[in-house]
Nucleic acid binder design. Structure first.
Lengths: 349, 349
DNA sequence: CTGTTAGCGCGTTCAG
DNA sequence: CTGAACGCGCTAACAG
């Protein structure tokens, strides 16, 4: 046993074996209808016999498209870890892409360090035909680069001032939805546990939260935390201490909400009686809490469907040429963590 | 508006602009040290000016390696959804691969339907240099194909009778570890909630569980369930009904354990008093249960490190030529769900 | 040390 | 309808 590379069989080999020219093989493989049926059969048989398969690299070099699309997820190192939201997203994208006949090249970006180099490695080097970007900071330098180079891409997230194709939840509405649920349930000191400053999802939900509280004549109180269960737990420790601590929290995602749950437990706070909770993403985590965690469902399937369709249209050069921002509606899943308070004073309502 | 494809600038253009030959540009881009510094500078400048970047497809066609490795995950449709284990795995692989200078092509396989076609699309078409396979059924036809074609690959999972490179936890030991924890805690009717029949992780852990129970002179009882929280919940409903229901359960993974927790709640069973619980993967879910969920940690980082190193060695043609099975040790994370029973009879111990 | 030449495997004219 | 010839963009072998 020796040879490193297997199957060095090429189109030319098949051609010889079938007694035709290489271009005929090419035509047969491409399904060209104007090939004599007899020749076609000879070729197909030879191809099958030697289990020939076209070289994807040569193909994409020639026909100038790789049949791959890139997925770039921006998260701090280890930030993907354990977040079911991304499993969902990736799974959904894969299924959708499979139907479109493309494969996926996954890329993780941690900080600002390599965001540009990723853009280069993936796009300018023509490794992929287009890119889906997930999440963004408020001012994302990649967008300008991609735009300048006229590269097919779609952002899953809020493009802010950039005029690009994007698909997003209406996170302002979502933030308001979450806050209103708590207001309606009778909580009085409703704070928000947000993500790191500058993350658009976070900022948008903060905005929605703020508007809802303003409208109800209640004061806003906002804490920022890094992603992840542990970071949130620590910030919650601070937030939930003291006599003026909030009696309800809008939390940026389910994972962080679990951090809050841990702290609440430590401090002997019962949910929802001592602390109301609403979060986002509606992952499996929501079912795990004793009486369930109220969460805003993002409708990932629709999000992905829109994003992939939009990207594919760009790649094919179809569709309206003007970038558009597509909004996918959210939906509140009401569960026990935001149930109406059984306090005496609530009887007045 | 106008041109579809951006940046049609090639090595030849740069060569002309710098007044050198194309191969010199190639050398400079490759970092060849024996190029006159002055020329190098001219080339680099021209390249920067026109933001030139080598075409990855042409490169890999010529130097017969794509710089990409494939990750093929076999799970039923939607089975990736919400499983934090895979987020972890993927994240870890990406980081590791990044260090090795490769990118990742992700592929999901649902049933037997397309497992062969994936093999073709990825490997035979030379889209990737090698493949990491995750999970396998007891007799996996892909392994033979890959082996026959001498394709660089490593299996994360148990290869059973196949003689291939693989990295795996010692799931037999892990299963025993879990069962022994429950035995030690004083439970008497310890059953196992396993995955679908034929999945090697599941079978191995069943084996370990059985051995541990045999050794303790206790009878085995095994239920099979599909993956996911909901499927497990349903099976648990059946398993936990009746007077002879188990008082402790070894569950195949954290997500399924959560299904069990839901059922336990419905039926008014308290954990760990009425029902002991040990599962696998040690994801964030374990911290969410009131007193914590005891779980066997798989040491994903080590798993991935071994797998990637092994694959890279194969691709480079290095390393021992004989396939080896690498085992990564597991570790029990003891938490509240398997805490010793506070029953009267337990005082005897 | 540099330029010239020859392919990598395939798609696509362009004659016949 | 088919085959011969060319080139995608790049690397590698060989001269000079």
């Amino acid at each position: 046993m020796g040879h490193r590379r297997p199957n060095k069989v090429t189109q030319l080999d098949i051609a010889r074996l079938a007694g035709v020219s290489q271009s005929t093989v090419s035509r047969v493989m491409a399904g060209d209808p104007k090939v004599e049926p007899e020749l076609r059969e000879r070729v197909l048989q030879a191809a099958r016999l030697h289990s020939y398969l076209p070289d994807a690299r040569a193909q994409s070099l020639r026909r100038r498209e790789s049949g791959m699309i890139g997925l770039v997820i921006k998260r701090p190192r280890g930030g993907l870890a354990g977040d079911a939201f991304f499993s969902n997203l990736i799974g959904e994208i894969m299924d959708r892409l499979h139907d479109a006949g493309s494969r996926l090249c996954l890329e993780l970006v941690h900080g600002d360090e390599n965001e540009v180099s990723v853009h280069e490695a993936l796009l300018r080097s023509k490794r992929v035909d287009g890119v889906i970007l997930v999440e963004s900071v408020v001012h994302d330098s990649r967008l300008e680069l991609l735009q300048r180079d006229r590269f097919p891409f779609v952002l899953i997230g809020n493009p802010m001032r950039s005029h690009v194709w994007s698909v997003d939840n209406d996170n302002v509405a979502a933030g308001a939805l979450a806050a209103e649920e708590l207001i309606r349930s009778g909580y009085r000191r409703i704070a928000m546990l947000a993500g790191p400053p500058g993350i658009t999802v976070s900022e948008d939900r903060i905005l929605g939260y703020s508007r809802a509280l303003d409208a109800a004549g209640m004061p806003c109180r906002i804490w920022h935390s890094d992603f992840g269960i542990e970071a949130a737990r620590l910030v919650a420790e601070e937030a939930l201490a003291g006599p003026m601590a909030p009696d309800a929290l809008v939390v940026l995602d389910d994972l962080m909400a679990m951090g809050v749950v841990l702290t609440a437990r430590e401090q002997g706070l019962r949910i929802p009686d001592d602390l109301g909770l609403v979060s986002f993403n509606d992952t499996h985590l929501c079912h795990v809490l004793e009486r369930g965690l109220t969460s805003v469902s993002l409708n990932i399937e629709a999000l992905v469907r829109e994003a992939v369709d939009c990207l594919m249209a760009q790649i094919r050069g179809e569709g309206p040429s003007e970038p558009r921002r597509i909004l996918v509606p959210c939906q509140l899943k009401r569960r026990g963590s935001s149930a109406p308070l059984p306090r005496g004073e609530e009887a007045l309502r």
